[in-house]
Amino acid sequence: MSATARTVARGAPWGRAATILVPYLWLLLFFAAPFAIVAAISLGDYTPDTVPPVTLTWSGKAYALLVGDALYAAAYLNSLRIAAIATIVTLLIGYPMAYTIARAPAGWRGPLLMAVILPFWTSFLIRIYAWMGILSENGLLNQVLRGSGLVDDPGTLLGTEWAIYLGIAYAYLPFMVLPLYASLEKMDAALLEAAADLGARPWTAFRTVTLPLSLPGIVGGCLLVFIPAVGEFVIPDLLGGTGTLMIGKVLWDEFFSNGDWPMASAVAMAMLVVLVAPIVLFQRARARDLAGR
């Protein structure tokens, strides 16, 4: 055995251990540790005159308030509702896009996917600000509507919940399109021919074959949009109206306006619990998708 070979042989188990270790280390460093810190803060007492303004006590006062005050439950429910509607809007926009790309000639798919992703090379904030410019009273959209003579007084979309849905749909579109594309693209085109051959009109073939087969993509895409949308802060704050109660804003208020770290942490912990169900669902769907392959 040559010297080089021996070194490789001895180095290999260590290298393998490191390879396995790295993701765990990553998780420990950037998920488990921060999570533990936030959990500990959430159980502490708010003491405004200390740095930082929290004393670790395990009192859990923040949770008592979280349960006792209807505001938080209302904020969570409203966030879930807005995220759900926004997810459906994103799905309705994203599905036809993913479908078109998956059915496009092979040479076109790369550039089309690129076009979906390309806007994400500019800053998220700048893109949301751009939407403010488009949707405002004297913004681009209304100028076009008025200029076309179709509508005299189009009203203002900015500041409504629909602006939030639009913003979320725009910002999270790739997270919807990519999993949908993946599940649609791997679908055998012969299946649709088989359906047609057996008497299915195009819409029936879509409903009975394409749709069920893209279900893993739909579930994946929807959860990838839904989960972050629940905690979304910037889009509702900038595009939404004042009256939109969302948990992200409540959290911001707890942390920044009140400076109440334990309460803010408790709100964050509760959000995680609320999202556990969809996350588990997502993992199941992925596992099933992988197994089905």
Binding site: A190, L191, E193, A194, A195, A196, D197, L198, G199, R201
Partner: peptide, 17 residues
Amino acid sequence: PPYARPVNMMFQSYALF
């Protein structure tokens, strides 16, 4: 269209759902 023809096809790949 295919769905209205009095023929059925057995595909080389079978194309089972």
